[in-house]
């Protein structure tokens, strides 16, 4: 009898914990979507903010986030893939590769606000790019680099050596083997990792705080050397910095919904690629 009670208690402990973790997600999504989805209208998506940002839409913030993510991609993906190719395809285990791998692991653990400081010192001040979407995109690129390298390397590791041997034995150089066989085969895996990393980058706020994000921009800026609005910062601003916080709460909920939907969209694309690729094997 006593044993039975203990066992029951243990069940509650484990299953209960799992239920609580699931509830966290449920509460987050329910609260934000139940109050935010009704704010999402075509006007909200496509209009500029108006009346001191108490009315209107979030179009500049959406454009800003897309432009920002685009710059991050252009910078971090080639760089990260090249580094992963070096580590997995060219390099033999050595002191140097151990140091590179240790650097990558530690870079992944650095708080994002410190990347913000580094972006400020390097891009804004030293490279004189100013506070701009370019500086912010490059900063987010640095932040994304370790994740892109790690996920790409994992994708490359899954390619069996027999694929590489096939072309090498025909007298292809290592680069030709990488370009013609390894990368095309690893592409779905690389893509999945890249998209998940970018979805994280798109939701980041701390690294862009000092490198170019703006409270409000008059009109719509798509120039890469200008400040920009971004969805996460817009949400932060609407919920803490605005002079009439209660009045703009529906806008804040709407912005949060759009941000989460955007991030989930990225994730769904990534899962789709992973799923489709798995079912092909």
């Amino acid at each position: 009898m006593k044993k039975k009670t203990r066992s029951f208690f243990n069940w509650i402990l484990l299953a209960g914990s799992t239920i609580i973790v699931c509830l966290f997600l449920g509460i987050i999504l329910f609260d934000i979507f139940s109050k935010g989805l009704s704010s999402i209208t075509w006007n909200f998506i496509s209009a500029l903010p108006s009346d001191g940002m108490t009315k209107g839409g979030i179009f500049p913030a959406i454009i800003g986030t897309i432009l920002l993510t685009f710059i991050t991609t252009l910078f971090a993906v080639p760089f990260g893939v090249a580094c992963a190719v070096y580590l997995n395809e060219y390099a033999r285990p050595s002191v140097l590769t151990n140091i590179i791998r240790a650097s990558i692991r530690n870079l992944a653990g650095i708080p994002s606000i410190i990347y913000g400081l580094f972006g400020l010192a390097l891009f804004v001040q030293a490279f004189k790019l100013g506070t701009s979407v370019l500086s912010a995109g490059l900063t987010l690129g640095l932040l994304s680099l370790p994740y892109i390298i790690t996920t790409t390397e994992e994708a490359l590791k899954r390619i069996p050596n027999s694929m590489r041997e096939a072309t090498l034995a025909l007298g292809a150089t290592q680069f030709e083997t990488i370009k013609d066989v390894v990368l095309p085969k690893a592409l779905p895996g690389i893509l999945t990792g890249v998209i998940l990393t970018l979805s994280r980058a798109a939701g980041e706020t701390a690294p862009i705080l000092f490198t170019g994000v703006a409270f409000y921009i008059n009109g719509l800026s798509t120039s890469i050397n200008q400040e920009f609005m971004a969805l996460p910062y817009h949400l932060y601003m609407l919920s803490t910095q605005h002079q009439s916080i209660e009045q703009v709460r529906p806008l804040a909920y709407g912005t949060a919904s759009v941000l989460i939907l955007l991030v989930f969209m990225f994730n769904i694309i990534a899962f789709y690629i992973r799923f489709k690729h798995r079912s092909q094997d």
Partner: peptide, 13 residues
């Protein structure tokens, strides 16, 4: 999915 929620949205909550 929980890992994917941006920190600013959690702060908002």
């Amino acid at each position: 999915m929980l890992a994917a929620i941006p920190s600013v949205a959690i702060g908002f909550l």
